[in-house]
Design a protein around this nucleic acid. Structure first.
Length: 449
RNA sequence: GGUCCCGUCGUCUAACGGUUAGGACACCAGGUUUUCAUCCUAGUAACAGGAGUUCGACUCUCCUCGGGACUGCCA
């Protein structure tokens, strides 16, 4: 409580500024985007600023397309930033000016060095303290300390004259007036170097918080083999941005009570960077899938309706004007786990060219008596007035005479939809309409010996 | 190898040093239902191991084991 009060006071005195600083390599990884989410929430929670810095100094991999993909991911997740995106390549002059100053101050020196791949050239090295301890208080990991002798000098300018990450990163943080650096665990060791760099440049180091990694189902760091670890893939697979956002947030943080599905506003209100976990979290696709279904079920009908129309449209289907879309939404919304499920789960309402599950046919239709049953039902449905779900259900109930309706319902379902699961049967028939229902019952009957 | 970090159900996690160690996902058994899904009810399942401190340890200390990060002219 005291801490939080202090945070508010400090924010009033000097605004909190955090940043997401990805290098655009084409695909945005979930671990990176979770860091972005935590930064964004921290900024929104404290009333500070969330900044975007594109670390595009790796000219090989940084393409306009990659940057575009990055921006789209952020927009999809609702990670809006408060100042124009800062491009690292635009700040190279500043980087080099800082190097000159460091050299002039004796904090950096030129040196002949042989790189890992055997190339020799002159680089600029940053001089680290040689004795004493280096320490900082990590917002999530607590007090971190190292002997100075364990952190050697390091290169800040390549032999081709280009600035290296450590230097560029720190100079940019100074220029963007970043107050809190919340980033991946893999930077913990770098922090000892970065803090010295800040000091050598006459700047106050920011506060640091290091996030543990997200590991795969085997508990190992994600590799390219794991797949589906990129934000874009979740989008393509029909996940809701809100669900992915919520799930990622819960990987390493919780609101302190038993709530899990949170609104964006609740997240902002409750998020507390100090309560973020130190331990690595395993990515559980099953729980994400559940959460996605949860978000779809909770979505406003209108949103579902729009998504339904657009997904059908993408499949080349436009429901006819007299189609009862409301009823379809009623039936489908609770049965949808991914947006991508939509066309497949209702395509048979709109075309005669729909897939038929042969196992279903085997189980429900290829039985003695079913042919006659379907013909009988076809003629009954042809006469049913009105042709509604309620009337259809009443009719079959009447035929079943108080017994279970299974023997009638199951064959009808497979005969008219080609599958064993789906909306309530009578709603399904109403949506199909009399003509299609009768025609499909007769067609199914004809296909039987 | 060296430096640093971490360790509660299968997974994500909760638990002022005192709880029958709680919740969620998954799993499983029922119920509702014309199928599937939803929904409701119940269940299986964890403090890595060992010392110590303490009246009392998941919680504090140490050791062991296990996992991870870093150890670039990559970011």
């Amino acid at each position: 409580m005291t801490r939080r009060d202090c945070g508010i006071i400090c924010a009033a005195m000097s605004e909190i500024r955090v940043r997401f600083a990805p290098s655009p390599t084409g695909k945005v990884h979930i671990g990176n985007i979770r860091a972005a989410i935590y930064n964004w929430l921290y900024a929104r929670h404290t009333g500070g600023k969330f900044l975007l810095r594109v670390e595009d100094t790796d000219l090989e991999r940084s393409t306009p397309e990659a940057i575009q993909a990055l921006l789209e991911c952020m927009e999809w997740l609702g990670l809006d930033y408060d100042e124009p995106a800062f491009y690292q390549t635009k700040n190279v002059d500043r980087h080099m000016a800082c190097v000159e100053k460091l050299i002039a101050d004796g904090r950096a020196y030129k040196m002949e060095k042989t790189s890992r791949d055997g190339k020799t050239g002159e680089v600029v090295m940053f001089r680290m303290p040689k004795e004493g301890t280096l320490a900082f208080d990590d917002i999530v990991k607590g007090h971190m300390e190292k002997k100075a002798e364990d952190v050697p000098d390091f290169a800040i300018v390549r032999s081709d004259g280009s600035p290296i990450f450590h230097l560029a990163n720190v100079v940019d943080d100074i220029d963007q007036r970043v107050t809190h650096v919340i980033r991946g665990d893999d930077h913990v060791e770098n922090t000892f170097k970065h803090i010295e760099l800040f000091k050598a440049l006459g700047a106050t180091p920011p506060k640091y918080g290091h996030l543990s990694m997200i590991v795969n189902a085997q508990g190992k760091p994600y590799s390219k083999r794991d797949g589906a670890a990129f934000v874009g893939e979740f989008r393509e697979n029909g996940y809701l941005p809100e669900a992915l956002f919520n799930y990622l947030l819960l990987l390493g943080w919780n609101p302190g009570d038993e709530r899990e599905v949170l609104s964006r506003q609740e997240m902002i209100d409750l998020f507390d960077i100090e309560k973020v976990h130190v331990t690595a979290a395993r990515f559980d696709i099953k729980k994400l899938q559940w959460m996605n279904g949860e978000y779809i079920r909770r979505a406003p009908r209108e949103q579902y309706r729009q998504e339904l129309l657009s997904r059908l449209g993408a499949a080349g289907i436009v429901p006819p004007p007299d189609f009862n879309l409301d009823l379809l939404v009623d039936q489908l919304q609770i049965r949808t786990k991914f947006w991508n499920d939509i066309p497949g789960n209702c395509i048979y309402f709109f075309t005669e060219d729909y897939p038929v599950d042969e196992k279903a046919v085997e189980k429900r239709l290829k039985k003695p008596g079913v042919k006659e049953l379907l013909l009988d039902l076809a003629s009954r449905f042809a006469r049913l007035e009105p042709f509604t779900a309620a009337a259809g259900e009443a009719m079959v109930k009447d035929i079943a005479q108080g017994q279970g309706m299974g023997p009638w319902v199951h064959p009808i379902r497979v005969a008219v939809s080609g599958r064993m699961e789906g909306p309530g049967l009578f709603e399904m028939l109403e949506l199909l309409g009399r003509e299609r229902t009768v025609a499909r019952l007769e067609r199914a009957a004809r296909s039987l010996p």
